[in-house]
Amino acid sequence: MISEKEIWDALYDVKDPEIPKISVVDMGIITGVKVSEKDFVNISMTPTFAGCPAVNVMRSDIEKRISLMPVSGVNVDVNYDVQWNSNMITEKGRELLKDSLFALPPVHNGFVSIEMLTNIECPLCHSKNTKLQTPFGPTQCRAIHYCNNCFQAFEQFKPV
């Protein structure tokens, strides 16, 4: 019988199509893995943002990856039973976001305030002399900032 750990390990191969370095596990969007006695795999996934257009791609990538394993079938259920927040990105995930030149979302206690979007450290020159340009970026999960020190715009993974 295949173990849940083997499924979790395999899920590290499935990447976020919008940030291809980071896996769905490190994004923190996999909220449950269950293997039934007959080796049927049920996976729970929750979107970072409700309207995330990458959800269906990730769901089908997960199904494809798990189908390569000795399982009788796989079902990916997208639900809000556990609601994603930016604290759920793993330590490794945060490292990988940094590598991709994203500013990180501050870890919070469940309450996000506008102050969390000010003077964010620039991922290029590490200055904190930066300014929020807009909380809405090229994807729903990113905000755009501007660094007054190195005169570059940069993106931050939003705290939610």
Partner: peptide
């Protein structure tokens, strides 16, 4: 431009909410 992105992004959120 920033407002263009804001309204488009909020549109995406709203349609995502309606889907759920």
């Amino acid at each position: 431009l920033e407002e263009d992105i804001a309204f488009s992004s909020m549109a995406q959120d709203k349609i995502g909410h309606s889907l759920a």
